[in-house]
């Protein structure tokens, strides 16, 4: 299996694209660093016992009066910025991945059903996506979050905030999956292998999910990669605006929001380093997505 992958055209085009290789290396580092942050991070920023206010606002280690222990400095409560970034990236990735997974599930199902069944069902579903696409997605996420705040009791909302955020970002991202999948499905459903299944009486659901779905996943993979970057940014934006994750469970967006209060007073590292981490991660994801789009496009090969 691995041997076949290493010999495939996709891997060949990957190896010959330095940007893609670089992005992949960065992403792998980010993934390892964030997923295993409880074991890899120098300190645990949530462990209140280990915090010492005396250590607050230590500049990064490479600055003249920086402390060795805090490579990227500390914040106002003495938390190690590098550790905060590692933990924060984990939260950002968690939200991003689950939001995209949710958007894929919803969007792919809608696209398959609309594209395969056609007619009235298709018109209905596609008008809904058109309407949603005419609103900025961040607005939809804000709206969903606002409704959740109004409807849920405060305690419950706080504990569910992470999932509300995932739902809000996911729901704002599904239409582009639905559109793409519908387009590919309309091409696939007229192919003869689908006819062959229909002749022997295979049901619509089975044709959609076991025959057509595997053949429309290529473009989905590309969009999924690119929307992972968007979802992480959306989460950061919401958290930055203060409607996202609370400071007790900080994501990269939350770190940037808190840190920007100290930007003008000289403690720039508290906000700049999380910002760089965010930008680097999203850039790597997007570059990888661009490469994937070209690699899977038979016309460019």
């Amino acid at each position: 299996m691995l041997g076949r992958f290493l010999d495939s055209d996709v891997f060949y085009s990957f190896r010959r694209n330095p940007l893609a290789v670089g992005s992949a290396i960065i992403l792998v580092c980010v993934l390892i660093g964030s997923v295993f942050s409880p074991w890899l991070a120098p300190t645990n920023p949530f462990d209140l016992a280990s915090l010492n206010v005396m250590d607050s606002f230590n500049p990064p280690a490479f600055m003249p009066d920086g402390a060795r222990a805090n490579l990227l400095g500390t914040d106002e409560q003495g938390r190690d910025v590098l550790s905060s970034i590692m933990y924060g990236t984990r939260v950002s990735l968690f939200v991003g991945v689950l939001a995209v997974a949710f958007a894929i599930t919803l969007g792919v199902t809608v696209g398959l059903v609309a594209g395969y069944l056609g007619g009235f069902v298709e018109s209905m579903l596609m008008r809904i996506t058109d309407v949603q696409l005419s609103f900025p997605s961040i607005l939809i996420a804000l709206l969903v979050d606002g409704i959740a705040r109004a409807v849920l009791p405060r305690e419950l909302h706080n504990s569910l905030e992470l999932y509300v955020l995932i739902f809000a970002i996911g729901i704002s991202g599904w239409p582009q999956f639905a559109r793409t999948v519908r387009g590919s499905t309309m091409v696939e459903r007229n192919k003869e292998y689908v006819m062959a299944a229909r002749v022997i009486g295979i049901g619509s659901a089975r044709i959609m999910f076991s025959h057509i779905l595997p053949n429309v996943l290529g473009p989905v993979l590309v969009i999924a990669t690119l929307s992972l970057g968007q979802a992480i940014l959306a989460e950061a934006t919401l958290s930055f605006l203060g409607v996202g994750l609370p400071p007790t469970e900080p994501s990269l967006g939350t770190l940037i929001r808190i840190g920007q209060n100290f930007l003008l007073s000289g403690e720039w590292w508290v906000t700049i380093f999380p910002g760089i981490a965010l930008a680097l991660m999203v850039l790597a994801i997007n570059l990888l997505g661009d490469w994937l789009r070209d690699a899977l496009n038979p016309r460019l090969r």
Binding site: K191, V199, P214
Partner: peptide
């Protein structure tokens, strides 16, 4: 009726489109 439906089948024109490439 599955038993009657079974007794008819079809062969198609395009050998590149008539087999699911992922199966």
């Amino acid at each position: 009726q599955p038993d009657l439906r079974r007794r008819m089948n079809m062969i198609f024109q395009d050998p590149y489109a008539s087999l699911n490439p992922r199966w």
